[in-house]
Amino acid sequence: MDAKARARLGQEMKSLGYRKRGSSYFRISAGGLYAIISVQKSAWDSVEYLNFGYAEGASAESGWIPESRCQVRFRLDAVRGVDARLMALMSTEGLSASNSDSLVEELLDAISPFLEVDDWAGLRAVIDERISDSRLFVHRDVRRFLGLGLPE
């Protein structure tokens, strides 16, 4: 993700009440749901991953837990409607400056429902509508609570 795209993402996150820590943005919503969006660099190439995580807000000691400890997790490529053009934003190679602005706005439109989730019921609705189940991790503690029939 180039610096301009990263700055635009950060601007959007902050406008929705997210705080920044390292390469992650996080918040606890009014409905008590902890959400974290993390930009993770690949160890092998120039690709970065956009990771999403959700947990019970009460479990976030001092307001923070890493995405890897969240009860619900997925990556950008699990979101329906995110295609190769949008995934190109996550690479520092092969993205021309001329189209990055419009792609960033398309990306923000694609992920905005996940940024604005306020509670578990809202998360379940967005998962049903926008996520490919095969790329979704849901911890067994919340599977029944969310009503997801994913394999144990």
Rank of each mutant, 00 (worst) to 15 (best):
W120T: 00
S134F: 05
G31Y: 04
N51G: 03
T92M: 04
E61Y: 04
R85M: 03
S96M: 11
G147F: 11
R27K: 15
R140T: 13
V142P: 01
P66Y: 07
R130G: 03
Q11Y: 01
G94C: 08
A88T: 01
F145Y: 14
M87H: 08
M1E: 01
M1L: 13
G17C: 10
P151Y: 06
S23Q: 11
W64I: 12
G31K: 03
S102D: 14
S102T: 14
D119V: 03
I37C: 07
G147R: 07
G32E: 12
S91Y: 06
N99R: 15
G122A: 05
G31R: 06
V82D: 03
A3S: 15
H139F: 11
P113K: 10
E129K: 15
N99Y: 09
D109A: 15
R27L: 09
D128I: 01
D119P: 00
A55S: 15
F114C: 01
S59D: 11
V79T: 02
G31C: 11
F26C: 12
Y54A: 00
F26T: 04
A125H: 07
S38H: 15
L95C: 12
Q11C: 02
A5R: 00
S91W: 03
L50D: 01
L89R: 02
W120N: 05
D133Y: 13
A30T: 09
M90D: 04
A121S: 14
A121Q: 10
E48R: 10
F52H: 05
L76G: 03
E129I: 00
G57C: 09
S24M: 07
L108S: 04
A58G: 09
R27H: 12
Y25M: 08
E61K: 14
V82H: 04
D45E: 00
I36D: 01
D83S: 10
S46M: 03
V39P: 02
K4W: 01
W44I: 05
E67W: 07
A35R: 06
G22I: 03
R21T: 06
E152C: 01
A7Y: 02
E93D: 12
